[in-house]
């Protein structure tokens, strides 16, 4: 006997390492995160293959073409230094893929919002637990603020808490790598001990400028995931109760 009948559109898919699901997103917000770091919009949408491809490409091409250094000097008004920093040989490859990532995350969100509504109206059953050799994933209520605080304390932990293990693992590695190459730990130490000129000297701005986008994205995504997974849990529970515990034989008092 098949316990879960086939659905035209699934609302969610539980796997061991993550719960992939549709929920409503503001396309402009998703586009913004792709604008601040190409691939992050797709990462929000849990389209991991595309997201990792775009994110790693961005890291590679930006570092090669010195885009961040160019942005730094341009915003400081030192246009000669900006021009000298940018590497023409790599710069050309940057543009189309950057624009694509923004466009794709906007377009994808608009489509996925429609798919969400259709899936939600279809109200197909969702499985609520998935076990395997790597991990146990189950729908449950999680505190959004806790996801936020863990993310602020150490990138990736909020995602592990809401059981987005793939995102968590990636962010963990990625952020530590970027922080290391930016010489962030030394810069923080110098800053805290009052040697501010040393901090400015040691920090590598080409790498450090990746961090604002990464950091804000992480706490936002962890928080939103907790909220949306809670909604998913409620929908699954309500669906189950409606299907299983509304017997026709129930003896009503009237």
């Amino acid at each position: 006997m098949k316990l879960i009948p086939p659905a035209r559109r699934k609302r969610a898919h539980l796997s061991q390492l993550t719960t992939t699901h549709f929920h409503l997103r503001h396309p402009l917000v998703v586009a913004f995160f792709s604008f601040s770091f190409p691939g992050f919009g797709n990462l929000m949408q849990q389209r991991y293959a595309t997201a990792f491809m775009l994110i790693l490409w961005e890291l590679f091409i930006n570092t090669k073409a010195h885009i961040n250094t160019g942005i730094l000097y341009s915003l400081l008004g030192d246009f000669e230094k900006a021009k000298a920093a940018l590497d023409e040989r790599w710069l050309m490859f940057y543009v189309a893929i950057y624009m694509y990532s923004i466009w794709d995350s906007y377009r994808g969100s608009v489509d996925m919002n429609k798919l969400y509504l259709l899936a939600d109206r279809e109200d197909a059953p969702i499985s609520s637990i998935r076990m395997g050799i790597w991990d146990i994933n189950y729908l449950d209520k999680r505190e959004p603020w806790l996801a936020l605080v863990w993310s602020v304390l150490a990138p990736g932990l909020g995602h592990l808490y809401v059981h987005k293990v793939i995102t968590g693992l990636f962010i963990f590695t990625f952020t530590i790598l970027v922080s290391y190459f930016a010489h962030l730990p030394e810069a923080i130490t110098y800053t805290l001990t009052g040697r501010l000129d040393c901090a400015t000297k040691i920090i590598d701005m080409q790498w450090a400028l990746y961090l604002p986008s990464i950091y804000s994205f992480i706490f936002y995504d962890a928080y939103v995931s907790a909220v949306e997974y809670n909604k998913l849990f409620e929908k699954e529970l309500a669906h189950y109760l409606r299907r299983r515990f509304q017997p026709k034989r129930f003896a009503w008092p009237i």
Partner: peptide
Amino acid sequence: GAIYGYVLAWGPII
């Protein structure tokens, strides 16, 4: 903040 902090006294971190 990080960009302009680079040339300001308190540095990019603060």
